[in-house]
Design a protein around this nucleic acid. Structure first.
Length: 762
DNA sequence: ATTCCTGCCTTTTTT
DNA sequence: AGGCAGGAAT
């Protein structure tokens, strides 16, 4: 059944929902954004809800922009503009900018990113004289973040061990520093807003009543703090409308709690539930592949994803030799697509981790195929950009120590480490900001006169800049600052290619400030800085005529006609599944694979390499278990020429040695789901007459041209291998046999002859 | 004070 | 492989 607006029954039900809590389980490609935007339009147009009393929250700026534009299309720009649409972080920043003073967040607050956080923690470790080996900043911040996501402060966290006590101490000092700096980190944006809303101030009361309707996208990715925020914002009327898909929950590592969506109806007795199960996006084969991947997942809310679309073509699974071979395949897909007259914008290449993009990029560049990389090396994290922003932030908010320390000697002003160490120690002692210490003669009394003079000059420059830029547009201010402090001159004098690139980046930064001025009603420098902090490169619009490269995480919420998923190997995807020391979460990896598969509309290509460079050293890989989970009748296997050559070269023994059983030789690499049990006589392995001896595995479906392109370990003399007991060793010889052996030298053990299947590539 | 070198450690994934 | 922190050399 379809309504006049073209909605199916459950969609229409969700859209028509007016009051009370409701959870929508929205399968991939089931039209959830449509449901949210239509519902907002419905509330405004049919139920006379004031647009500014509606809040719609997303996780990414991109989703927010998309939602806003669609709402404006439905209800008109004038009303649409009034709706509060934004990410969790941007929404909170907006609230805090206005009402944050009640929770010690000044109007001019700055947002510390991960780098800033680390700088600050490192300083605290020094201050508290803690060993940064034993208490690495990264780990400390991980802990602090975790606590914040659970809304615990340094005083309320669980301190069972000595290390916990240390963490609490660092945490406490960290918060003090943030407060003194007038800064917040990403988690604080949520935490502070929650604090504000929990308060009894008039502002808090008003805010709790402000929103008649709260709508949330990607609800499965909320953490406890975010969930609490939503409950507070909707506490008055309970009009909380959440949309998500527990199968697509992929952010547990940053605190997302899948139970928020799975237990929604338990948390809100009387809440309604709607399931969107019809997929409009993908071919039948792709939907079936996706189901195959997600079905083994545990604890799912039962859903029946289906599609009325054509079955389409099978999923292409391609065995490649290594990452370069893989890039060649990606190129081939792109070329085919282009020759068929498709826009390159409709092609995406996915990978599990950003590091995989390099080889793909090189290949695309060599072939002059236009591409864009989403995420990865982030523009706003480049040193020169951070420097420029640090100047701006130090001018807007001089209490921000991290920024002042960053730029105090860039370009070099003769204010060195020793000098600054003393200043910082003094500032810590007196509990004043670094800036205050620098501008206070008494605080500098212990310094050499020459150093004091240079510091005084720096302070004067900064004070001058604050005055001069006060009335300037952000772009002009940035330009002025960079010129005045000699930053541009420094780069120009350098003259190197890198310096040229840095100048270009700074021009781009100024350009982005100019863009901002065109968009915002009140383009102040502070607001520009805020936007920069909350902006990720992921938010760029899709360029015409360009292939897109990105991680699967970045791909969530997007769709492409053609998707190439690279690196479909065990230990790559699922990531680190072979590392027993890590508490990897294969469940989450599975959901991530589901996300990847469901991005494709028409064509899905999976590649897996038998060998790959990781951290500089070569590593072998077997196909990902997720490939096996795709129903055999919707996948088609093949291998590249390079792969064919490689396997022939290594695996086919000379005729005289006869009957080398390949299937057995690779057994330990081949069956990720069965724990190491080698395929034995239980699996009859007599090859069909047409095939070459030993060229088939019997537990697989094969098609026309498929000479079984499994990933093969290619152990050769000189390779570094790893043994459970002997550790790492160098291969000296390989003995072909039905169960091949390897002679290798293990430091501390000498030469050992071991079965190949007990080795892994080091 | 600056620059260069070396050794370590990294890598999920993002606001 | 690459980036970054700490240390040595200039």
């Amino acid at each position: 059944m379809v309504t006049p607006e073209g909605l199916n029954e459950p969609q229409a039900e969700a859209v028509a929902h007016v009051a009370g809590p409701l959870v929508v389980f929205a399968g991939a490609g089931s039209g959830k954004t449509r449901v949210i935007t239509y519902r907002i339009a419905n509330l405004v147009a049919q139920h006379g809800v004031a647009p500014w009393r509606i809040l719609a929250v997303t996780f990414t700026n991109k989703a927010a922009a998309e939602m806003r534009s669609r709402v404006e299309k439905l209800v008109g720009a004038e009303l649409g503009r009034e709706v509060w649409v934004g990410t969790f972080h941007a929404t909170c920043a907006r609230v805090l900018r206005r009402w944050g003073s009640a929770v010690d967040v000044p109007q001019s607050f700055v947002i510390y990113d991960t780098q800033d956080q680390r700088t600050l923690v490192n300083r605290i470790l020094k201050e508290l004289q803690l060993d940064d080996k034993r208490y690495p900043a990264r780990a400390m911040l991980g802990r602090i973040g975790k606590e914040k996501q659970e809304l615990r402060g340094p005083g309320s966290m669980n301190t069972a061990s000595y290390d916990d006590e240390i963490a609490a101490k660092v945490f406490a000092r960290y918060q003090e520093h943030l407060k003194a700096a007038g800064a917040v980190d990403f988690d604080d944006l949520i935490v502070k807003t929650v604090e504000l809303l929990q308060g009894e101030s008039a502002d808090a009361k008003q805010l709790r009543r402000r929103f008649e309707h709260v709508l949330v996208d990607e609800f499965q990715d909320t953490n406890f703090a975010q969930y609490t925020l939503l409950r507070l914002l909707s506490s008055e009327r309970q009009n909380l409308f959440v949309v998500g898909d527990d199968d697509q929950s992929i952010y547990r590592w940053r605190g997302a709690d899948i139970r928020n969506i799975r237990s929604f109806t338990a948390d809100f007795p009387g809440a309604r539930m709607v399931k969107l199960e019809q997929n409009y996006r993908s071919t039948g084969a792709i939907v079936r592949a996706a189901l195959g991947v997600i079905e083994p997942s545990l604890g799912r809310v039962p859903k029946e994803l289906w599609t009325a679309n054509d079955p389409g073509d099978p999923i292409e699974v391609i065995s490649v030799r290594d990452e370069r071979d893989e890039a060649t395949i990606a190129l081939r897909i792109v070329r085919e697509s282009r020759e068929a007259g498709h826009d390159l914008r409709e092609i995406a290449i996915f990978y599990r981790v950003n590091a995989q993009s390099r080889v793909l990029e090189e290949a695309l560049r060599a072939e002059r195929i236009p591409y864009q990389v989403v995420g990865g090396a982030k523009f706003y994290e480049r040193a020169e950009v951070k420097d420029a922003l640090a100047y701006a932030r130090a001018i807007v908010n001089s209490r921000s120590d991290v920024d002042v320390l960053r730029i105090v000697n860039v370009p070099a002003r003769g204010i060195g480490q020793t000098t600054m160490d003393r200043v910082v120690a003094g500032a810590d002692e007196q509990r004043i900001s670094v800036w205050d210490a620098l501008s206070d003669d008494a605080a500098l009394a212990a310094l050499a006169p020459a150093a004091r003079k240079r510091i005084a000059a720096f302070v004067q420059v900064m004070l001058g800049l604050r005055k001069e830029t006060e009335q300037m547009a952000p772009s002009d201010a940035l330009e002025h600052i960079l010129g005045r402090v000699g930053y541009v001159d420094m780069l120009k004098q350098d003259g190197s290619v890198e310096a040229e690139g840095r100048l270009e980046n700074l021009r781009e930064l100024v350009g982005s400030a100019r863009d901002f001025e065109g968009q915002d009603a009140q383009p102040t420098l502070a607001l520009f800085l805020e936007r920069v902090s909350l902006q990720s490169d992921t938010d760029d619009l899709r360029d015409q005529g360009k292939v897109t490269l990105m991680t699967v995480h970045a791909a969530k919420g997007l769709e492409y006609d053609t998707v190439v998923m690279s690196g479909m190997e065990e230990d790559m995807f699922p990531y680190r599944s072979l590392d027993p020391s890590r508490d990897h979460d294969v469940e989450e990896e599975r959901r991530l694979a589901y996300v990847a598969v469901t991005r494709a509309r028409r064509r899905l290509v999976l590649t897996h390499a038998s060998e790959r460079q990781v951290f500089g050293s070569s590593r072998m890989g077997r196909p990902s278990r997720f490939i096996n989970d795709i129903p055999a009748d919707v996948r088609r296997h093949s291998q590249t020429e390079a792969m064919r050559v490689a396997t022939r070269f290594v695996d086919r023994p000379p005729p005289s040695s006869g009957g080398f059983d390949r299937a057995r030789a690779v057994a330990p690499w081949r069956h990720p789901t069965s724990a190491g049990g080698p395929p034995s006589s239980a699996r009859p392995s007599s090859p069909p007459p047409s095939a070459e001896p030993g060229s088939r595995f019997v537990d697989r479906e094969f098609f026309d041209d498929v000479p079984e392109g499994e990933a093969m370990p290619r152990v050769k003399r000189g390779m570094l291998v790893k043994h459970e007991v002997f550790g790492e060793g160098r291969v000296l010889a390989v003995e072909e046999a039905s169960d091949p052996k390897v002679v290798a030298a293990f430091p501390g053990w000498g030469e050992k002859r071991v079965l190949l299947r007990f080795l892994r590539l080091a």
